[in-house]
């Protein structure tokens, strides 16, 4: 068996405590989330306790501890998007995919996230599927996008 993903990551860094966040990002990009085993391994390697790492990782919204879906759905609920009806987008996804924000569907296909602002308020309300941004969304448009996915 080839070396495990973490071993590969270990080779890329010096192994100093300051490397923690880049290491966590790397691990998440490989696994899609931060598995508990990986954290205890990082803990031994960087000499930071697992509890401290957990504290750091829970501080940032970018880290997750449960497997993510294959596709990431993100609905913006920043001020502009909220005013323009972003909440309704969430409702659509919730009902259609039986998915609450922060969760992953049972088949592991989608996960849903509500975000505070995507930085393109002129396009409100904004919805993103993986890296693609959909502007000036409506409930109907969103239904269409989800239909296409199937």
């Amino acid at each position: 068996m080839a070396s495990s993903p973490i071993e590969t990551i270990e080779e890329e860094f010096k192994g100093e405590p300051a490397d923690l966040i880049p290491v966590l990002q790397k691990v998440q990009s490989v696994y899609g989330y931060l598995p508990q085993d990986a954290l205890s391994r990082i803990s031994r390697w960087l000499k930071i306790s697992e509890n401290e790492i957990y504290g750091v990782a829970t501080f940032y919204a970018q880290f997750h501890f449960t497997p993510r879906g294959k596709h990431h759905l993100r609905v913006c609920l920043g001020t502009a998007c909220h005013v323009k009806g972003g909440e309704q987008m969430i409702e659509v996804v919730k009902r259609r995919l039986e998915l609450n924000p922060g969760e992953t569907t049972k088949d592991g296909k989608y996960d849903l996230e509500r975000v505070a602002c995507l930085g393109c308020c002129a396009l409100a309300p904004v919805f993103t599927l993986d890296t693609k941004i959909y502007a000036q969304m409506s409930v109907l448009k969103l239904q269409g996008i989800l239909d296409e996915q199937k």
Binding site: I48, N51, I53, Y54, T58, F65
Partner: peptide, 20 residues
């Protein structure tokens, strides 16, 4: 040097305790 306790989460949800 035991680091069993740490701050978890952020903002109003901050809590103290071990991981997971």
């Amino acid at each position: 040097g035991t680091s069993i306790l740490s701050f978890k989460y952020r903002g109003p949800k901050v809590q103290i305790g071990p991981s997971f």
